[in-house]
Computed example of a mutant assay.
Amino acid sequence: MSKRDYYEILGVEKTANEDDLKKAFRRLAMKYHPDRNPDADAQDKFKEAKEAYEILCDQKKRAMYDQYGHAAFEQGGGRGGGFHGADVGDIFGDIFGDIFGGGRAGGGRPRRGSDLRYVIELDLEEAVFGVERTIEVPTLVACKGCEGSGSKDGKTSTCSTCRGHGRVRMQQGIFSVQQVCPHCAGSGKSISNPCKDCRGEGRVEDERTLQVKIPAGVDSGDRIRLAAQGEAGPAGSEPGDLYVEVRVREHSIFQREGDDLYCELPIRFTQAVLGAELKVPTLEGEATITLPQETQTGKLFRLRGKGVKNVRSGRLGDLHCRVVIETPVKLTKRQRELMEELEGTFEGAEPGAHTPRANSWFDGVKQFWERMTS
């Protein structure tokens, strides 16, 4: 059976560069590698892609293939030579790191301390105007007894496992990958006289007290990164970072949507009918809203620039006040008489003259029932 074209196997053009070839092979390796695809034909497809990549990534072999095709490698001329044009560790270090326990990416660096997450709760005013808080974070800190080195006397020797390189090469079938040395955590050093306080780890459990400055305008979900304030790394290696995540408590008056604030403004029935000037609260003091006559419930009044200052752009949001008309309660005898007298004046009036929304609503209901019964 004739062999498929190598470019066709990888799904690339003949003008593809080395990066294009590598990306194409990665994609096929992810799909057909036996450790990930148990199908019977997956292994054959993987070998086919491997062979194509081996040839095309070697400049000399690729030139021969482009000129003579598969005939250039008959009699073993191009087979069995290994990956001369590419390092298999480079190819699979990123792809199969989760299978083999770590790839080339980051494999040469000592294991750093873990990043930490701390949730801080703020009132709306604190989030809007900014605040400085003292927080206490339980974490691993550098051991004071050995100054984070892990050695009681400060002396270290070359790690016998990785011979000081900090990395070890692991063979997994046809793949050879590098990972951080499990014995020295990538430092390349071993400790013969470990510190008794930290047992050679170079770090101990403690509580770190920090001052955190929260910028004005933050909202729930925003994070503040404090570099090198996470867990201390083992045996003096690089510490992790601390991420302070903001969570804003619910407010009794305002609701926040982005940079805008919303609040409800309860008014009396007579104020809605006759109009009024009302004082409304803002985060910076009082403001005045003028209600026109015959204001309907649900109407929004916008106060420009009375919202939240955006933490990134500095743009000011708005405050939106939603009118809610309250039904009078606990009326006096005289108040009830006046209400009854007012209600009497509506009798015999033209439909919709005083209640246009109610009139249109009833018309809608009537049309709905007519459609339902037709």
Rank of each mutant, 00 (worst) to 15 (best):
S2E: 11
Y7F: 15
G11K: 07
V12R: 06
K14H: 04
L21K: 01
K22M: 11
F25D: 01
P38N: 04
A42T: 05
A42N: 05
L56K: 04
L56C: 08
K61M: 15
F73E: 03
F83H: 14
F83A: 14
D87A: 05
I91T: 09
F96Q: 00
G97M: 05
I99T: 04
F100M: 02
Y118N: 01
L122I: 13
D123A: 07
E126H: 12
V128C: 09
P138T: 10
P138S: 15
A142G: 10
C146G: 11
E147P: 02
K152C: 09
G154S: 12
S157M: 15
T161M: 12
M170S: 13
Q172Y: 09
G173A: 08
G173D: 08
C181H: 06
S190Y: 05
I191C: 00
D197I: 09
E207Q: 05
E207I: 13
L210C: 04
P215S: 02
D222P: 15
R223V: 03
A235C: 08
S237W: 03
E238G: 02
V246L: 15
R249C: 11
R249L: 13
L261H: 09
E277C: 03
L278E: 14
T282S: 08
L283R: 01
E294Q: 12
T297F: 06
G298T: 09
L300E: 15
L303P: 04
R304G: 14
G307E: 00
V308L: 09
V308Q: 04
R312I: 07
G314N: 06
L316V: 01
C321P: 01
T327M: 13
K330I: 06
M339L: 12
E343V: 01
E347H: 10
E347K: 10
N359K: 14
D363A: 14
M372V: 06
T373M: 08
